[in-house]
Amino acid sequence: MPRVVVGVSGALGSPAVLSRGAAEARVRDAELWVVMAWQAPGGELGSRSACNVSALAQCRTAVVERLREVLDEAFGTQGPAAALAGLTVRGTPGAALVDTARASDDLLVVGSGSRSPLRRLVRPSVARYCLAHAACLVLVVPSSPLHADLDAVHRRNLWHLPLDTRELTP
């Protein structure tokens, strides 16, 4: 059976990506696999010591709980009207999504994310990684214009810049 694999992070864009993925699953009569990738605290080297076994278990539990919250926020009690599977994968987001959507008839749905210059420097784009490495079709869902406005407000608050009231009038 074909699959629609949707990558979520729990960020503001996740509901839009999930909604688009669910719509694609209904149209294609496919299973909907929702994937949330996670990494060990302190990276892979930090997880190799014996004292971090409980930290790994706590991290895994927190990610599973966060995935449940994201699915509840997106679909509520009714569900997506398609066969749904939630999956948490330990690894970098791009590699986890590409490994999960490895069949040629799969569809991988990811969000474009916020790509400020600083974030591009610190964290590579998951969407670009998926586009470059996936063996299946990749659908990148753009961010909402409201998300860009929210980022601008967050930056202004972070840098304690004054509010220009002319921005509030249409």
Rank of each mutant, 00 (worst) to 15 (best):
S112W: 14
G10Q: 00
A81T: 11
P145V: 00
H133D: 08
R3L: 01
L146A: 10
A23F: 08
D151A: 14
L137P: 05
A103Y: 03
P41R: 04
Q58Y: 06
L87H: 11
L87F: 11
V141Y: 05
G91D: 08
V70E: 11
E73I: 13
R115F: 07
V122S: 11
P2M: 06
A81P: 06
T165D: 06
G111K: 04
S114M: 11
A96S: 02
P162Q: 11
V63S: 02
V6L: 04
S112A: 15
L131F: 06
G43Q: 08
V4A: 01
T61M: 02
R120K: 08
L108H: 12
V98Q: 03
L131Y: 07
G43A: 05
S14D: 07
V4N: 00
A23Q: 14
G46W: 11
R48K: 10
R28W: 06
A135I: 08
A103I: 00
C136Q: 08
E44N: 12
S54E: 09
G21C: 10
P2N: 08
H160T: 14
A40G: 09
S112C: 10
P2K: 12
R128V: 00
V53M: 07
T61I: 00
P80Q: 03
L84Q: 00
A40H: 09
E73T: 12
E31T: 04
R68T: 15
A127P: 02
M1R: 00
L158C: 09
R128L: 04
G86M: 00
L161H: 13
C59D: 08
V27H: 11
W159R: 15
A55V: 12
L137A: 09
D105W: 08
V109G: 02
A23W: 09
R120D: 02
T92V: 01
V70D: 12
